[in-house]
């Protein structure tokens, strides 16, 4: 299955206007400075925000088409979406959180073993660390057997060491997943480490030169230069 999208959305300071596609078993990393429209794009794929114009097509299914007035609800898209935080329901323990929408609740145990959080299954989200919460959030998304996995800066609230560990776990997990994965980050290292394809997005538009400008430390201008500081910092680690 391939997810193909062509999206237009008017935002307050700029317009989002991108086209891309991502095939099964492939991870596309969307990278760019913060506030550049990446989350808006992901939300449009999930069906949480409607584009002004464009199409989202998954395999043979049309999820969104402005011309034909089609907009499939997020419930029916059957995808996994891991946010930076706020995936877990505070009133449920980790096990119930991961099993919340599981196709087969028995699979959750295996996922917990894989992500090494089995011993925390009875803990509530506020009683575990940020890294453990994000592990559980990924289990929650995977237990639903998603047809598309969206990860929106899932590790950026974590400390560097935890982040690197999870990044590696995700990379090794990637091979066993058969769905397309779209990963959002503003960290160039993370992008280079994980990506099969990279889609740089600056102010809502695809900007293929952004990565190179940022890495080679060309004196940039405006927001590109501002956003570039974050990845540069991360090159230290």
């Amino acid at each position: 299955m391939t997810i193909a999208a062509s999206l237009k959305k008017r935002l307050k300071y700029f317009d989002v206007e991108v086209s891309f596609s991502c095939a099964s078993k492939s991870m596309m990393v969307m990278i760019g400075p913060s506030g550049g429209g990446k989350t808006t794009i992901i939300r449009m794929l999930a069906g949480l925000t409607a584009p002004d114009e464009g199409q989202v097509i998954f395999g043979e299914e049309v999820w969104f088409d402005s011309a034909r007035r089609i907009n499939v609800t997020p419930q029916k898209r059957r995808l996994g979406y891991v946010f930076q935080d706020y995936n877990l329901f505070p009133h449920l323990n980790l096990l119930d959180n991961a099993a919340f929408a599981a196709v087969d609740k028995k699979e959750v145990d295996g996922l917990f073993d894989l992500f090494k959080i089995s011993h925390l299954r009875k803990r509530k989200p506020h009683m575990v660390s940020g890294g453990e919460r994000q592990r559980c959030a990924i289990c929650q998304a995977l237990a639903r057997h998603p047809r598309l996995l969206l990860l929106d800066e899932p590790f950026s609230a974590l400390d560097v060491v935890t982040r690197r560990g999870l990044r590696e776990e995700l990379k090794s997990l990637k091979g066993s997943l058969s769905c397309p994965i779209i990963y959002v980050t503003h960290d160039i290292n993370e992008a280079l480490f994980l990506a099969d394809e990279i889609l740089p997005v600056v102010e809502g538009k695809n900007d293929d030169g952004w990565m190179q400008r940022t890495i080679t430390r060309e004196p940039g201008e405006g927001t590109a230069a501002k956003g570039a500081r974050e990845p540069r910092l991360s090159l230290v680690y």
Binding site: A46, G47, L48, T73, P74, Q75, R77, R78, L79, G80, Y81, F83, Y86, N87, F89, P90, F100, A101, Q140, R144
Partner: peptide, 12 residues
């Protein structure tokens, strides 16, 4: 965002 996550997870 909790509600949105519930919608993504398929809950009406």
């Amino acid at each position: 965002r909790l509600l949105e996550n519930a919608y993504v997870l398929g809950l009406s």
